[in-house]
């Protein structure tokens, strides 16, 4: 104990706490404003703490934004299902089944991640206008999944390449065909990859603004990001309600960070750092 404290002086912890506090100040401020009474929003100097907290903002969220939260949840989950259903078998084909042309495919997936979302949004708009898919939840799910699918395939490929070949051969010896091997050996072993891919697919779909604001702007069901945006446009005086919506929209990120932090880190570093 004493050895550790001599090697890791307390001032480093103090400095670390200070840096974190500075970094997270905007997040605190969002929370603070969400609890501030409308009358105090224009106070000069601003109130640093919500001394007299109000739930006005949150009541407005509950009254007006519940459908939007539901839509976002639906879009996020739909995106997870679609992404995993496409990426997991593809990763298996590239990593274990020696898919012909896998080098080219890998290359295309990397290129796909570089295409700006605004360009994809225009292309999707042009396609959806003809098919009548504008302002539909299904159309938004498909568009949102384009952010996650290339990442998902690359992550599954990297992960599944690490599964020992002997295991798959053992399954084959036991009489399992390729599909059986995939379902009962490869998929269960790839649980961590599935968690990471699902987490990011959900978070990206939940946070998406570009596709929502272009493909679903007049829909009956708009996601929460668009809910916030329309809020800003409509009543710029009600910043406590806007910030309360923002706090609520941040809940999934917070939950995922607490529950699955190591998968977040794994996802961020995947592809960027090789070892």
């Amino acid at each position: 104990m004493s050895r550790r404290s001599s090697r890791n002086p307390w001032w480093k912890t103090a400095l670390g706490v200070f840096f974190t506090a500075v970094m997270l100040f905007p997040v605190y401020w969002m929370f603070n404003v969400s609890l501030t009474r409308t009358a105090d929003l224009r106070a000069d100097p601003p109130h640093w703490f919500p001394w007299a907290p109000t739930t006005e903002g949150y009541e407005a969220v509950l009254a007006q934004q519940l459908p939007a939260l539901g839509t976002s949840l639906l879009v996020g989950l739909g995106c997870v299902v679609l992404t995993v259903a496409i990426a997991a078998p593809a990763g298996y084909a590239v990593a274990q089944l020696r898919l012909p042309g896998r080098g080219t495919l890998n290359f295309l997936l990397l290129v796909a991640q570089m295409i700006p979302a605004v360009v994809m949004a225009m292309g999707f708009y042009a396609v959806y206008v003809r098919l009548g898919l504008l302002n539909t939840v299904g159309g938004l799910i498909v568009a949102d999944s384009t952010i996650a699918v290339p990442f998902g395939v690359l992550l599954y490929t990297a992960f599944m390449a690490g599964i020992p070949r002997e295991l798959l051969q053992a399954a084959r010896v036991d009489g399992a065909n390729t599909w059986r091997t995939f379902v009962s050996v490869v998929l269960p072993l790839s649980r961590n990859a599935t968690l990471t891919v699902s987490l990011f697919a959900f978070l990206w779909a939940w946070s998406d603004f570009i596709f929502a604001s272009t493909l679903d702007r007049n829909g009956d069901l708009v996601p929460i990001t668009l809910g916030i945006y329309q809020y800003i446009g409509n009543n710029t005086t009600q910043w406590n309600a806007i910030m309360a919506t923002a706090v609520v929209a941040s809940v999934p990120a917070a939950v995922l960070l607490v529950v699955a932090q190591r998968f977040v880190t794994a996802g961020v570093t995947a592809g960027a750092v090789k070892d």
Binding site: L24, P26, V27, F209, A249, Q261, V264, V268
Partner: peptide, 22 residues
């Protein structure tokens, strides 16, 4: 503390952007 540093990256961009705007 390192985990908490991830928060700004995980928030929806529109949330961060509107907070900064205010």
């Amino acid at each position: 503390l390192r985990a908490m540093f991830l928060v700004p990256w995980l928030l929806p961009l529109i949330v961060s952007a509107s907070t900064w705007a205010w």
